[in-house]
Nucleic acid binder design. Sequence first.
DNA 1: GGGCAGGATTGGATCGTTCAAGTTTCTGGA
DNA 2: TCCAGAAACTTGAACGATCCAATCCTGCCC
Lengths: 330, 330
Amino acid sequence: MAEKVTIATVARHAQVSRQTVSNVLNAPHIVREETRQRVQEAIAALGYRASQAARQMRTGRSRLIAVRIEPTRDGINGSVLDRFLHGLTETAEAAGYRTMLYTATDRQREIATYDDLLGAYDLDGFVLTATDHGDPRTAWLADRGVPFVTFGRPWDDLDAHCWVDVDGAAGTAAATAHLLAAGHRRIGWIGWPAGSGVGDDRRAGWHRTLRAAGVDPSGLHRETVDGIAEGERCARELLADPAPPTALVCASDSLALGALQAARTTGPAIPVIGFDDTPVAAALGLTSVGQPLGDAAARCVDLLTAVLDEPRRGLAPVLLQPALVLRRTA
Amino acid sequence: MAEKVTIATVARHAQVSRQTVSNVLNAPHIVREETRQRVQEAIAALGYRASQAARQMRTGRSRLIAVRIEPTRDGINGSVLDRFLHGLTETAEAAGYRTMLYTATDRQREIATYDDLLGAYDLDGFVLTATDHGDPRTAWLADRGVPFVTFGRPWDDLDAHCWVDVDGAAGTAAATAHLLAAGHRRIGWIGWPAGSGVGDDRRAGWHRTLRAAGVDPSGLHRETVDGIAEGERCARELLADPAPPTALVCASDSLALGALQAARTTGPAIPVIGFDDTPVAAALGLTSVGQPLGDAAARCVDLLTAVLDEPRRGLAPVLLQPALVLRRTA
DNA sequence: GGGCAGGATTGGATCGTTCAAGTTTCTGGA
DNA sequence: TCCAGAAACTTGAACGATCCAATCCTGCCC
């Protein structure tokens, strides 16, 4: 069993001091080219890797970022987080950071977990998902000066902190415009109850596009919690109207899926467009608004590393554009 | 800004030595009850948390386990890993371990990543997924004595290392038996090409159940790579036979989905059963064999922590039973 | 040839914890 | 009362990296 390779082993092998090896790693420009090369060779030959623990102890930085992994609720939307997570891990790796997971059942516990992670692992930063109005988590982190980025806007104050988001309103606007272009006028909306930032945003895109086209949206929409059965019920209600919508835009693929089933059973098929471009949508040929999740994750890492390198700078938020993925249903 | 709380701060506050505080944390039984309580109070009062980095430096253990996060391939099967990951993180947390993610595009790079993670972060262990015949990763880890558990059997030698798996054959057997009980005789199979451990296992369950019922399986099966379109094509072929199957069992929900569409378009609907109980299956009412993923993840953590506590013991592998989730399609 | 400036290199101290070994306190039996 | 032995607690050293301050070159100019 070969003994452990430390910075001292490398130094001895390259016939320099520990500090020189450290400089080669952390400040290569101050080391003479020839020396630098000799050290690099020794590092490669010995397979040396700097102990993150020792480095962290001295510098206080762990090169670790944390993300919460949520329980897959209805299973359909779970894949969104999954894709985001993958992008995040990949980009973070490229930037020299590693990703750590944690779970939390509610926000208070999540804050307790922050405390834990910061205290025990000296985490460098957090990426938060699923933020909402008056989120206590961002306040807690900001109070303590902990670097973090949210995937999702701080709906109360857009300058409150660093964020990355996808323009949901633009997505539903594109979906609505697509249906208008196909000749539809009475385009319905099935979404979530008012009050959630994401839901209101998506609804706004449909609303303003319809009004701009001179259509009165009243009576054309229903609000409910997320779910396939709920979507089906709402669609049934809308289609039972004397002047029913001839096409539907939904706040999620779950709702759209339900709507699709309602439309199939009540009469002639009508166009339905969902949101999130989940695997289910792809499997069923459901037209859906797709979020650039890989991109979003990459921008989160970019922002976070920028904050870590230069803690003072206030960084501009990032708003990405979604894209309508056309399939059979519209 | 409060200064950092270390073990020394706690020691001063409780009027004991550093070591006693350390003992309270790591070997409470050797500390007198009264002292123990005093130290615990000081810890709580100061909000002290042991620095994992410092601890790791001394002990060489990081209380960190790593899992690979795969790119969501066709998106349907992605959710399987997602659910597994969530269970893993949760159970690991309860056992005092944290989960770290990494990505890798191929097995050689994955091994390079092991080296990196072990060298830099002193990872305690790995959980591998998607193992197959002659997997170089397990050999590499075993050679170096790195603790690991695989989710998936080592198909070449069941005693090669510690593993947790779900009995796929039992799942397809249950599906086949269910169809037999419903009066079907000619039950078809759509699966993956021979050679993959998982695929062969699932196929075997269908095969042996059919034979046990006195039905000749020849001509009733098709093999293809995974995918909806592929499933549809295979189902078409089978149904075009002069004596077509009256029901289908598939190796995955993707294949089953394709088969379902083929059945819908070629004639009267026939029962179809998939595998993995993915969100897509739930959304479509597809009967499917569900894996106890949360359980599997928990057992992986159990085994891994057991190995970490007692490196010598050869631990018995775990084979979990899947469950048939009945829905509309069968 | 000597002195000097500037950059490259060196040794020592340090981060917060646990291990090993040493010291004090307590307990019980003669 | 005294002492052995155990139990409880304390002290110094070490893990492997980085930071700091001091020293050593090297080349250059007078």
